[in-house]
Simulated scan of single mutants.
Amino acid sequence: MPSFDVVSEVDKHEAQNAVDQANRELERRYDFKGVHASFELKEGVITLTANEEFQIEQMKPMLETCLIKRGIKITCLEYGDLRGAGKQVKMPATMKEGIDKELGKKMVKMVKEAKMKVQAAIQGDSIRVTGKKRDDLQEVMQLWKSSDEILLPLEFKNFKD
C-alpha cells in the first residue's frame, strides 16, 4: 500500500544562507552604518543583536525577506523577548520544527472530515498517511498545502508505492 510521512522541518543549510544574506544586507544599509548589529544562527535559534530596540524591529523584516527568498516559511519563526539594555540588545527567533500533538490531531481530523479513503496516524513529531491509491495520497497533500490552519512548513517524505 502506498504511504508517505509528513514532517515539519527547516532546511538548516538554507537557513544559514538566509542569515548570511541578511548580515550582508545589514552591512550595505545606510541606517546601520557604524552600528554593531548582526544575525547569528545556532542550533535552530537566530539571535538578532543591535544597539537599540528600534533597530531590532528594523532587522526583523530584513531577516524575514531573506528567509522567504530562500524558500523558508516565516510562520515557523517565533520571536522571544528582548534581552539586555544599554549598549546591546538581543532578541532570539526560534525556528519551530516538528508537528506537535495538537496540530497533528487537527491534521488527522481534517483528513477524516474530508472523508478520504486514507488512514492518517501520528508518529511522534510526524504523521504517516497510508491509502490504496497514490491519487488519494496526493489529494491529502493538496488538502494540507491549501489549508490556512497549518502554518508550519510541511515536507512529504518516504513516499512509497
Rank of each mutant, 00 (worst) to 15 (best):
K42N: 12
G71R: 03
N51Q: 15
S146E: 15
I68D: 11
R24Q: 08
A85V: 06
E9A: 12
A114L: 11
D5I: 05
E113L: 15
L137K: 00
V10M: 06
K117V: 05
F159R: 11
E27F: 07
E43L: 03
M95N: 01
S147P: 09
Y30L: 13
R28C: 06
C76D: 07
K160V: 11
R128T: 12
V111E: 09
V7M: 05
V108F: 10
L41Y: 11
C66I: 00
R24A: 05
I72T: 00
F54I: 11
Q123R: 14
M62S: 05
I74Q: 08
K160D: 09
E25V: 12
G34S: 04
R28Y: 00
K73N: 11
P153W: 00
E78P: 02
L41C: 04
K73R: 13
L82C: 05
D100M: 07
V45L: 05
F39D: 00
K33F: 13
M62P: 07
Y79H: 11
I72L: 09
R29C: 02
V6L: 12
S146D: 14
K33P: 01
V35D: 10
G44S: 06
S8G: 03
E155M: 11
F39P: 02
A85E: 12
Q138R: 14
A121Q: 15
D81P: 08
E139L: 12
V45F: 02
E139W: 06
K105H: 15
S146C: 13
V35I: 15
G44I: 00
E43A: 14
A93H: 01
K112F: 05
R24V: 06
E149W: 09
D135R: 13
M91V: 05
E40C: 10
F4A: 01
A121S: 13
F4W: 05
E14M: 13
C76N: 12
K42T: 12
K87A: 09
R134A: 07
V108M: 13
K109V: 06
Q138P: 02
K133H: 09
D100W: 07
K87E: 14
L41H: 09
G86T: 04
D125F: 08
G86V: 05
F4C: 01
Q58L: 12
